[in-house]
Design a protein around this nucleic acid. Structure first.
Lengths: 205, 205
DNA sequence: TCTGATTTCGGACTCGGTACAGTTTTCTGC
DNA sequence: GCAGAAAACTGTACCGAGTCCGAAATCAGA
């Protein structure tokens, strides 16, 4: 269905696009916290109530959860004989190897907004916390996670978040996409090496 | 100054105590999210505006930041010749060995409230995030942290948070303080071993 | 007791988010 | 093409956290 079916759906997607466009523009102009939902609704030419049917929260306007890597799922669906960490390492290396398909300009705008929104990290961490919990449960095969599962899940999620943050930070600071992309793969490899081999192998201090 | 100086100061401390008492009671009765600041003010017999001069946010009513372990400080002030991880391991083992001095009943009430407050983790993570950033900077000797410093800081903070969470979870679930306390030391030791030696040494999968 | 500084107070305000009833638009079956 | 069901949109009223302000009460020092 190349035309996405129905006029209703088409309109809806157009409205949705108008909202994100307006929001991103306002955020870029004045910063996340200085823009109100009422203003975004006005800029997108819809009512405030309607805005909340498209996006359940202000945060959801920039934190797209569609492109969602879910560590727990990756571990649960790993090929036989492969360790959880190996599966995760491979997945994220593949992810880093793939080209960025999204609109680079829009992505950069998002990154820039997120990079200097102080009140935004909390929401991201909430999402990360759920992923961590799920990963711990998966590592424990669904049972109540023991200490090792909890620790491993926490370390893995923390490492992934760290590498991601460094990637986006680099982009926001002006590093060309190609360079940041290259570095990303190397950093992912080191992150997983550190988890598997321990810090003793990787530090001199 | 055994009488803390001045009638004003005495009154202030009494009011502060009344607020925390009222808040903790209400939270325990109905849960964190179901209690409003207006209700707390009424229960403490002060005005809502005054309540906000004693506690700047609802969260601050239960998250006492006074007993504050700061990893960055611990690393920065470690004895010469000791590695950062060693310093942290020792500090947290000592912390676990020390008896709990605070009022056990009130502490348990706090823990119980926090354990089932869904909208509370965000604030805690914000604090944790600042600690993580500070630790990374300290590990990098104040310079812009490289990947290794970022990863180590993230893993350490994640591990500490995990062990703490398991401890409080156990208490909230009814584990006697003595048992939870014993387990705490063992879990801290394993957490730091895992960071130093890597997961390969500690898992069979 | 008078004066000046703090504290407290009530109330109005902002902003994110929810609830709802009523209207418009689109879809579907005839 | 039309009637009615379904969905989307709107305005408005509401809630709770948090801020701000002017006025009143309270305290400290002389």
């Amino acid at each position: 269905m190349p035309p996405p079916e129905g006029l209703r759906e088409r309109k809806r997607q157009r409205t949705r696009a108008a909202i994100t466009r307006a929001a991103l523009r306002l955020f870029a102009e004045r910063g996340y916290d200085a823009v109100t939902m009422t203003e975004i609704a006005a800029a997108a030419e819809i009512s405030r109530a309607t805005l909340f049917t498209y996006f359940p929260s202000k945060r959801s306007l920039i934190v797209d959860t569609e492109t969602d890597d879910d560590p727990a799922r990756i571990v649960a669906e790993r090929a036989g004989g492969r360790t959880p960490i190996d599966a995760l390492r491979r997945f994220y290396l593949d992810l880093a190897a793939a080209p960025i398909d999204a609109d680079a300009g829009e992505l950069m705008a998002r990154v820039a907004v997120i990079a200097e929104a102080p009140g935004l990290a909390a929401g991201l961490h909430h999402h990360a916390e759920e992923q961590r919990r799920a990963l711990a449960a998966t590592l424990a095969d669904g049972a109540e996670p023991d200490l090792l599962a909890d620790l491993l899940a926490a370390e893995i999620c923390a490492a992934i978040a760290t590498v991601k943050a460094r990637f986006f930070r680099a982009l926001a600071d002006g590093t060309p996409m190609a360079d940041a992309h290259d570095r990303l793969a190397a950093e992912i490899a080191l992150a997983f090496d550190l988890i598997e081999d321990g810090s003793r192998r990787h530090t001199t201090t």
